[in-house]
């Protein structure tokens, strides 16, 4: 056992190296990392926990059943209320009204879909806004569309 101390030293060094590795690993790897793959699985639930800004398709009907029914009868039935107005979160939070729902400029909002563009599918109702307004003897204003159309049910 003349050289025992050399072996002890080597083993001791190995133990120290292993300990340092395990410690470094412990502190370098965040919690929940690697549970499902090479990522922090807590991140998944963090993403999932975010509060939705837009409501569900029937969110508006809770208070505005008349408008929703009126819209559902017409050609804007498939158009989400929030598409023209804004996300529900600016208006209602926890069933409490927190602010007014914005109303867009009709000439702008109608134009998003109905200004005539070559790239729109044929058969989708489109007009050259300026011509359409002139043809009907109106003058161009922000809300000129509402002179003849109801935005919620445009054929009315």
């Amino acid at each position: 056992m003349e050289h025992a101390k050399h072996i002890i030293r080597a083993v001791l060094l190995l133990v120290i190296a292993a300990t340092v590795f395990v410690l470094a690993r412990h502190f370098a790897i965040p919690a929940s990392f690697g549970e499902y793959g090479p990522y922090r699985s807590a991140s998944v639930t963090e993403h999932a926990a975010r509060e939705p800004m837009h409501g569900e398709a029937d969110s508006c009907a809770g208070c505005h059943a008349d408008e929703v029914d009126f819209k559902a009868e017409g050609k804007h039935a498939k158009l989400s209320c929030e598409s023209c107005h804004a996300q529900l979160s600016v208006h209602v939070h926890n069933d409490q009204k927190v602010g007014d729902m914005p109303i867009p400029k009709p000439i702008e909002a109608c134009g998003w879909c109905h200004e005539k563009l070559r790239a729109r599918p044929e058969g989708f109702p489109q007009i050259v806004l300026a011509d359409h307004v002139a043809e009907n003897g109106e003058t161009m204003t922000d809300s000129v569309c509402l002179e003849c159309h109801n935005a919620h049910n445009p054929s009315e």
Binding site: H47, P52, H54, E56, E82, S83
Partner: peptide, 20 residues
């Protein structure tokens, strides 16, 4: 919209599309 689809809702873009 992982925060929506995991709650059984659809994505904001799909919900907003007027022509499916």
């Amino acid at each position: 919209c992982y925060h929506r689809i995991t709650k059984g809702m659809t994505t904001a873009c799909v919900q907003a599309c007027p022509v499916e």
